[in-house]
């Protein structure tokens, strides 16, 4: 392989942290709550093995390495999209009404941004690296957007987020946000060799994200909260119009005073 000693050490540390995250996830039975995230962590570890074999056999600068690397990236970013949806579902699904309102918005936003990423990437056929960067940026943007929208719902309705979920979400959001910025820089000045700092940023942000996941899983997961006691189906229909009427009157009056 064409790695320097520093790069080899950094890679070894990355693999070590990923394995630790995977071991902790399995030990704390995370797959019962976040199955897709557990699968994602497994894929990360497998990915390192596949890349190591590919780089060893064909060299890091080969076409084969390029395609293997970006195929694995595409798989990972797609699963990250599913994982952020899974996190939103884990937090909001006990509140049936809010989840029914939020779910179509999350799915719709995800589909629009994924479609837009594909459409943007198809416009730039050459060079191939520019196409992959555009596609990756769009998909990472989708991950961040789904996460932020889901969290805005949690904040608006005052739904509490478990600590471990917050750290997992922070890791995903942080990495994807850095990649969006990173891909923007790279697609603007597409000469990676002249800007090695961006590749370092990619690696560093991934290491930081995995440390966030390590923090999330370091302690055993909290016990599941009992299901909230929901109101009878008709109560919302009875209470909401009264509140709306009053709030509307209140606003009208407030506007009158102001004017």
């Amino acid at each position: 392989m064409d790695f320097s000693l520093f790069e080899s050490v950094r890679w070894a540390i990355t693999v070590l942290i990923e394995v630790m995250v995977l071991v902790l996830a399995l030990r704390h039975r995370l797959f019962e709550r976040l199955p897709f995230f557990t699968v994602y962590v497994c894929i990360l570890v497998v990915n390192e093995g596949i890349l190591w074999v590919t780089y060893s056999l064909t060299g890091i600068s080969s076409h084969a390495s390029f395609y293997v690397y970006w195929t694995m990236q595409a798989i990972q970013v797609s699963i990250r999209g599913i994982v952020v949806y899974e996190i939103c579902r884990e937090i909001l699904s006990p509140y049936a009404g809010v989840w029914k309102l939020c779910r179509p918005l999350l799915i719709g936003l995800g589909l629009i941004l994924a479609g837009s990423a594909v459409a943007t990437a198809r416009r730039r056929i050459h060079p191939i690296s520019a196409t992959t960067l555009m596609a990756e940026r769009g998909l990472e943007l989708m991950v961040v957007a789904i996460l932020v929208l889901g969290l805005v719902f949690c904040r608006y309705y005052g739904v509490r987020i478990d600590r471990y979920l917050a750290w997992v979400a922070l890791g995903l959001g942080f990495y994807s946000a850095v990649q969006v910025a990173n891909d923007t820089f790279l697609s603007e000045w597409l000469t990676r060799a002249r800007f090695p700092i961006w590749e370092d940023l990619r690696n560093a942000s991934f290491n930081i994200a995995t440390i966030f996941w390590l923090v999330a899983l370091w302690k055993p997961l909290p016990a599941r909260q009992p299901a909230p006691v929901l109101l009878a189906p008709g109560e919302y229909g009875r209470l909401a119009p009264q509140m709306t009427l009053r709030l509307r009157e209140l606003n009208t009056r407030l506007l009158e005073i102001w004017k």
Partner: peptide
């Protein structure tokens, strides 16, 4: 109002937007 919405099994989209 949010508490009522959170604890309701069904909420109306239009109603929630209006409150917002």
């Amino acid at each position: 109002a949010h508490l009522i919405a959170v604890l309701s099994p069904e909420i109306a989209k239009r109603q929630e937007w209006e409150w917002l």
